[in-house]
Protein backbone atom coordinates (compact mmCIF):
# COMPACT_ATOMS: atom_id res chain seq x y z
CA UNK A 1 0.00 0.00 0.00
CA UNK A 2 2.49 2.60 -1.09
CA UNK A 3 0.60 3.85 -4.10
CA UNK A 4 -1.77 6.74 -3.72
CA UNK A 5 -3.73 5.56 -6.77
CA UNK A 6 -4.45 2.22 -5.15
CA UNK A 7 -5.76 3.87 -1.99
CA UNK A 8 -7.79 6.31 -4.06
CA UNK A 9 -9.45 3.60 -6.14
CA UNK A 10 -10.06 1.38 -3.15
CA UNK A 11 -11.66 4.17 -1.17
CA UNK A 12 -13.76 5.23 -4.14
CA UNK A 13 -15.09 1.69 -4.43
CA UNK A 14 -15.87 1.32 -0.73
CA UNK A 15 -17.47 4.78 -0.69
CA UNK A 16 -19.61 3.92 -3.71
CA UNK A 17 -20.53 0.67 -1.98
CA UNK A 18 -22.09 2.27 1.08
CA UNK A 19 -23.55 5.06 -1.05
CA UNK A 20 -25.28 2.52 -3.29
CA UNK A 21 -26.58 0.61 -0.30
CA UNK A 22 -27.82 3.40 1.91
CA UNK A 23 -28.61 6.20 -0.58
CA UNK A 24 -29.17 4.84 -4.06
CA UNK A 25 -30.96 1.58 -3.25
CA UNK A 26 -33.60 3.12 -0.94
CA UNK A 27 -34.10 5.95 -3.43
CA UNK A 28 -34.64 3.52 -6.31
CA UNK A 29 -36.81 1.23 -4.24
CA UNK A 30 -39.12 3.57 -2.34
CA UNK A 31 -37.93 7.07 -3.23
CA UNK A 32 -40.44 7.59 -6.00
CA UNK A 33 -43.55 6.64 -4.07
CA UNK A 34 -46.43 9.01 -4.69
CA UNK A 35 -49.43 9.89 -2.56
CA UNK A 36 -52.12 7.36 -3.25
CA UNK A 37 -55.78 6.73 -2.66
CA UNK A 38 -56.00 4.57 0.41
CA UNK A 39 -59.15 2.49 0.13
CA UNK A 40 -60.43 1.29 3.47
CA UNK A 41 -60.41 -1.61 4.12
CA UNK A 42 -57.38 -2.06 1.95
CA UNK A 43 -57.63 -5.44 0.29
CA UNK A 44 -61.02 -5.13 -1.30
CA UNK A 45 -61.59 -5.02 -5.03
CA UNK A 46 -61.34 -1.49 -6.43
CA UNK A 47 -64.17 -0.18 -8.56
CA UNK A 48 -64.95 2.77 -10.74
CA UNK A 49 -66.01 5.81 -8.80
CA UNK A 50 -64.16 4.66 -5.72
CA UNK A 51 -62.86 7.52 -3.68
CA UNK A 52 -60.88 6.97 -0.54
CA UNK A 53 -58.69 9.35 1.40
CA UNK A 54 -55.64 10.49 -0.51
CA UNK A 55 -52.62 10.01 1.72
CA UNK A 56 -50.35 11.71 2.45
CA UNK A 57 -51.49 15.21 1.61
CA UNK A 58 -49.28 18.27 1.36
CA UNK A 59 -49.61 20.39 4.46
CA UNK A 60 -51.76 23.48 4.07
CA UNK A 61 -49.93 26.83 3.87
CA UNK A 62 -50.04 27.71 7.55
CA UNK A 63 -49.03 24.21 8.67
CA UNK A 64 -46.18 24.17 6.12
CA UNK A 65 -44.92 27.45 7.59
CA UNK A 66 -45.25 25.92 11.02
CA UNK A 67 -42.90 23.11 10.04
CA UNK A 68 -40.26 25.73 9.33
CA UNK A 69 -40.70 27.23 12.80
CA UNK A 70 -40.44 23.71 14.25
CA UNK A 71 -37.18 23.25 12.35
CA UNK A 72 -35.85 26.70 13.28
CA UNK A 73 -36.43 26.22 17.00
CA UNK A 74 -34.80 22.77 16.88
CA UNK A 75 -37.90 21.05 18.32
CA UNK A 76 -36.62 17.85 16.70
CA UNK A 77 -33.77 17.74 19.22
CA UNK A 78 -36.22 16.65 21.92
CA UNK A 79 -39.26 15.37 20.06
CA UNK A 80 -39.20 12.53 17.57
CA UNK A 81 -41.73 11.93 14.85
CA UNK A 82 -41.30 8.25 14.19
CA UNK A 83 -43.26 5.43 15.71
CA UNK A 84 -41.22 2.25 15.93
CA UNK A 85 -42.80 -1.22 15.78
CA UNK A 86 -42.04 -1.69 19.48
CA UNK A 87 -45.29 -2.15 21.45
CA UNK A 88 -44.33 0.59 23.90
CA UNK A 89 -44.42 3.14 21.09
CA UNK A 90 -48.02 2.24 20.34
CA UNK A 91 -48.83 2.95 23.96
CA UNK A 92 -47.05 6.31 24.08
CA UNK A 93 -48.52 7.53 20.81
CA UNK A 94 -51.93 5.97 21.49
CA UNK A 95 -52.04 4.60 17.97
CA UNK A 96 -51.16 1.05 17.07
CA UNK A 97 -49.37 1.63 13.81
CA UNK A 98 -45.70 2.17 13.04
CA UNK A 99 -44.36 4.90 10.76
CA UNK A 100 -43.27 4.19 7.20
CA UNK A 101 -41.66 6.08 4.35
CA UNK A 102 -45.03 7.18 2.94
CA UNK A 103 -45.84 9.21 6.06
CA UNK A 104 -43.14 11.78 5.25
CA UNK A 105 -43.50 12.35 1.52
CA UNK A 106 -44.28 16.05 1.74
CA UNK A 107 -41.87 17.18 4.43
CA UNK A 108 -38.59 18.65 3.23
CA UNK A 109 -36.78 17.96 5.43
CA UNK A 110 -38.90 15.61 7.52
CA UNK A 111 -38.54 16.10 11.26
CA UNK A 112 -37.67 12.57 12.33
CA UNK A 113 -36.03 13.79 15.52
CA UNK A 114 -32.82 12.77 17.24
CA UNK A 115 -33.92 12.30 20.85
CA UNK A 116 -37.00 11.72 22.93
CA UNK A 117 -36.60 14.01 25.89
CA UNK A 118 -40.21 14.93 25.26
CA UNK A 119 -42.97 12.74 23.85
CA UNK A 120 -43.13 11.61 20.23
CA UNK A 121 -45.26 13.99 18.17
CA UNK A 122 -46.20 11.81 15.17
CA UNK A 123 -49.81 11.79 16.33
CA UNK A 124 -50.04 14.93 18.41
CA UNK A 125 -52.74 16.27 16.10
CA UNK A 126 -54.95 13.35 17.10
CA UNK A 127 -54.02 13.25 20.75
CA UNK A 128 -54.45 16.96 21.34
CA UNK A 129 -56.58 18.81 18.79
CA UNK A 130 -57.17 21.82 21.06
CA UNK A 131 -55.51 24.94 19.64
CA UNK A 132 -55.60 26.91 22.88
CA UNK A 133 -53.93 24.02 24.72
CA UNK A 134 -51.03 24.08 22.29
CA UNK A 135 -50.66 27.85 22.41
CA UNK A 136 -50.69 27.97 26.22
CA UNK A 137 -48.26 25.05 26.30
CA UNK A 138 -45.81 26.86 24.01
CA UNK A 139 -46.16 30.03 26.05
CA UNK A 140 -45.81 28.35 29.44
CA UNK A 141 -44.94 24.64 29.21
CA UNK A 142 -45.52 24.08 32.91
CA UNK A 143 -49.11 25.33 32.77
CA UNK A 144 -50.45 21.78 32.60
CA UNK A 145 -48.07 20.19 35.08
CA UNK A 146 -49.17 20.11 38.69
CA UNK A 147 -45.67 20.99 39.87
CA UNK A 148 -46.01 18.54 42.75
CA UNK A 149 -43.62 15.64 43.25
CA UNK A 150 -41.19 17.23 40.82
CA UNK A 151 -43.63 17.20 37.93
CA UNK A 152 -42.03 19.91 35.88
CA UNK A 153 -41.55 20.18 32.18
CA UNK A 154 -38.04 20.75 30.90
CA UNK A 155 -39.40 22.29 27.73
CA UNK A 156 -38.26 25.88 27.32
CA UNK A 157 -41.01 28.49 26.95
CA UNK A 158 -41.27 30.36 23.66
CA UNK A 159 -42.35 33.88 24.68
CA UNK A 160 -40.92 35.31 21.47
CA UNK A 161 -43.79 33.69 19.59
CA UNK A 162 -46.29 35.78 21.60
CA UNK A 163 -47.09 39.45 22.17
CA UNK A 164 -48.34 41.18 25.28
CA UNK A 165 -51.12 43.55 24.35
CA UNK A 166 -53.07 46.03 26.43
CA UNK A 167 -56.72 45.04 26.63
CA UNK A 168 -58.75 47.62 24.71
CA UNK A 169 -61.66 49.37 26.47
CA UNK A 170 -64.09 47.78 24.01
CA UNK A 171 -62.93 44.29 25.02
CA UNK A 172 -60.07 41.85 24.63
CA UNK A 173 -58.85 40.27 21.43
CA UNK A 174 -60.69 37.13 20.39
CA UNK A 175 -57.40 35.44 19.65
CA UNK A 176 -55.93 36.08 23.10
CA UNK A 177 -54.81 33.02 25.02
CA UNK A 178 -57.20 31.58 27.56
CA UNK A 179 -54.58 31.17 30.25
CA UNK A 180 -55.14 28.85 33.20
CA UNK A 181 -54.66 30.39 36.65
CA UNK A 182 -51.36 28.61 37.18
CA UNK A 183 -49.71 30.83 34.58
CA UNK A 184 -48.40 33.99 36.18
CA UNK A 185 -47.49 36.80 33.81
CA UNK A 186 -44.49 39.07 34.44
CA UNK A 187 -45.28 41.88 36.87
CA UNK A 188 -45.52 44.68 34.34
CA UNK A 189 -48.12 42.73 32.34
CA UNK A 190 -50.27 41.45 35.18
CA UNK A 191 -52.82 44.23 35.05
CA UNK A 192 -54.86 44.85 31.93
CA UNK A 193 -52.72 42.88 29.49
CA UNK A 194 -53.49 39.86 27.41
CA UNK A 195 -51.22 37.41 25.58
CA UNK A 196 -51.78 37.25 21.84
CA UNK A 197 -50.09 34.62 19.66
CA UNK A 198 -48.07 35.87 16.69
CA UNK A 199 -48.63 34.38 13.26
CA UNK A 200 -45.58 32.19 13.90
CA UNK A 201 -47.17 30.64 16.97
CA UNK A 202 -50.37 30.03 15.02
CA UNK A 203 -48.41 28.42 12.19
CA UNK A 204 -46.52 26.16 14.60
CA UNK A 205 -49.77 25.05 16.22
CA UNK A 206 -51.35 24.48 12.80
CA UNK A 207 -48.39 22.23 12.00
CA UNK A 208 -48.67 20.32 15.27
CA UNK A 209 -52.39 19.83 14.68
CA UNK A 210 -51.68 18.55 11.16
CA UNK A 211 -49.53 15.71 12.52
CA UNK A 212 -51.44 12.46 12.34
CA UNK A 213 -50.27 9.11 11.05
CA UNK A 214 -53.61 7.41 11.45
CA UNK A 215 -54.24 6.15 7.93
CA UNK A 216 -54.31 2.41 7.42
CA UNK A 217 -51.64 1.59 4.82
CA UNK A 218 -50.81 -1.64 3.10
CA UNK A 219 -47.26 -1.64 4.47
CA UNK A 220 -48.39 -0.31 7.84
CA UNK A 221 -51.75 -1.71 8.85
CA UNK A 222 -53.44 0.02 11.72
CA UNK A 223 -54.56 -2.36 14.42
CA UNK A 224 -57.40 -1.59 16.78
CA UNK A 225 -56.64 2.06 17.43
CA UNK A 226 -55.92 2.82 21.02
CA UNK A 227 -56.53 6.51 20.53
CA UNK A 228 -59.56 7.95 22.18
CA UNK A 229 -60.59 9.69 19.01
CA UNK A 230 -64.04 11.12 18.86
CA UNK A 231 -65.81 12.70 15.93
CA UNK A 232 -64.75 16.20 16.99
CA UNK A 233 -61.04 15.40 17.03
CA UNK A 234 -61.33 13.54 13.75
CA UNK A 235 -62.88 16.49 11.99
CA UNK A 236 -60.39 18.85 13.57
CA UNK A 237 -57.48 16.85 12.19
CA UNK A 238 -58.95 16.33 8.79
CA UNK A 239 -59.73 20.02 8.57
CA UNK A 240 -56.13 20.91 9.31
CA UNK A 241 -54.74 18.35 6.90
CA UNK A 242 -56.83 19.38 3.93
Amino acid sequence: MNHGTLIFLGLLLTFLGSWSGMVLAPQVQIGRQQPDVQLQPLNRPPAEGDVGEIYPQARAGLAAQGREIYQREGCYYCHSQQISPHPADARWTQLNRFSVHRDYLFDQPAMFGVQRLGPDLSNIGLRQPDENWHLVHLFAPNAFMDGKAGNKSTMPPYPHLFDYRKIMPQGGSTSALKLPESVILPKQYQDGYEVVPTSEARALVAYLKSLHQDVNLFEAPMYAPKAKTNVVSQTATNGAAK
Partner: peptide, 23 residues
Protein backbone atom coordinates in the same frame (compact mmCIF):
# COMPACT_ATOMS: atom_id res chain seq x y z
CA UNK B 1 -20.72 17.18 -1.22
CA UNK B 2 -22.96 14.13 -1.62
CA UNK B 3 -24.90 14.71 1.58
CA UNK B 4 -25.44 18.44 0.99
CA UNK B 5 -26.49 17.87 -2.59
CA UNK B 6 -28.85 15.03 -1.69
CA UNK B 7 -30.44 16.49 1.43
CA UNK B 8 -30.22 20.26 1.06
CA UNK B 9 -30.86 20.02 -2.68
CA UNK B 10 -33.99 18.05 -1.78
CA UNK B 11 -33.29 15.31 -4.30
CA UNK B 12 -34.78 12.68 -2.01
CA UNK B 13 -38.06 12.77 -0.14
CA UNK B 14 -39.72 10.92 2.69
CA UNK B 15 -37.84 8.51 4.89
CA UNK B 16 -35.03 8.16 2.33
CA UNK B 17 -33.83 11.40 3.92
CA UNK B 18 -33.35 9.51 7.17
CA UNK B 19 -31.34 6.82 5.41
CA UNK B 20 -29.12 9.40 3.69
CA UNK B 21 -28.65 11.32 6.93
CA UNK B 22 -27.73 8.15 8.78
CA UNK B 23 -25.31 7.23 6.03
Amino acid sequence: GTASWTLLGQTVRGAVQLSVNGW
